[in-house]
Computed example of a mutant assay.
Amino acid sequence: MGTTRFSDFRQRLGIASDVLTDRLAGLVERGLLERTAYQEEGSRTRTEYRLTPAGHDFEVVLGALGVWGREHLATDEDSGVRYHDAAGRPVRVAFVDEDGRVLTGDEVTVSRG
């Protein structure tokens, strides 16, 4: 959602610095974020965090979790996060077969390998 700097993450999430440091390090270690140096005029070099291609791919997973949470864990507090296409139309996460047909949960099975 556009946040890339440690101080912005800390303010937005409201968590302790040591916890945030560990979480960001884990996301970097797993390849979802990459650290990039930046320097504002007159300031020391700092680090920002950017999504990697794997991080962008993970957005689909987060979108699916968000939809599931809104439908099954309804609370009075809404995260306000919604996904849209380039024209601003709402999009959703779904199982889609190779012909482009959206499947219901009953039409999908899970197998190993």
Rank of each mutant, 00 (worst) to 15 (best):
E40S: 00
V19Y: 01
R70E: 06
T21A: 15
R23N: 09
E59K: 15
W68K: 01
E59Y: 08
E98F: 08
R82W: 09
D8Q: 14
E40W: 11
R10T: 01
R101A: 12
D99I: 00
S7M: 11
R23M: 10
G88Q: 11
R46A: 15
D18F: 06
F58Q: 07
R44S: 05
Q11G: 05
G80H: 01
L13T: 00
E41P: 03
E107C: 01
T21N: 13
R112P: 01
E40K: 15
V93R: 09
V61K: 08
F58W: 07
S79A: 15
E77M: 08
G14Q: 11
Y83F: 15
A37W: 07
R46G: 09
R89D: 11
V91Q: 04
L73K: 15
L65Y: 11
A64K: 12
T3S: 07
W68M: 10
L24H: 02
L32Q: 09
F6E: 04
A16V: 11
V93P: 00
E107G: 01
G42K: 04
D22C: 09
R92V: 11
R50M: 04
F58S: 01
R5L: 00
G66R: 13
I15H: 03
G26Q: 09
A16T: 13
A37T: 06
V81L: 11
R23H: 07
F6H: 06
R23W: 02
D97C: 08
Y49Q: 00
V102E: 13
T104M: 02
E48Y: 07
V110C: 02
F6D: 04
R101K: 14
Y38T: 12
R50I: 14
G31R: 08
D76H: 09
V61A: 15
Q39T: 08
H72C: 07
P53R: 08
A16Q: 13
S79Q: 10
D8I: 04
P90S: 08
V81Q: 00
G55M: 03
R10F: 03
R92D: 15
A94G: 15
V60I: 13
G66F: 03
D8A: 15
R46L: 13
G88A: 12
D57T: 06
E98S: 03
A74K: 07
P53N: 11
V110L: 10
L51V: 08
E34H: 03
V108D: 00
V108Y: 01
S111N: 03
A64M: 14
S17H: 12
P90F: 09
V93W: 09
M1C: 04
L13G: 02
T52P: 02
E29K: 14
R70H: 04
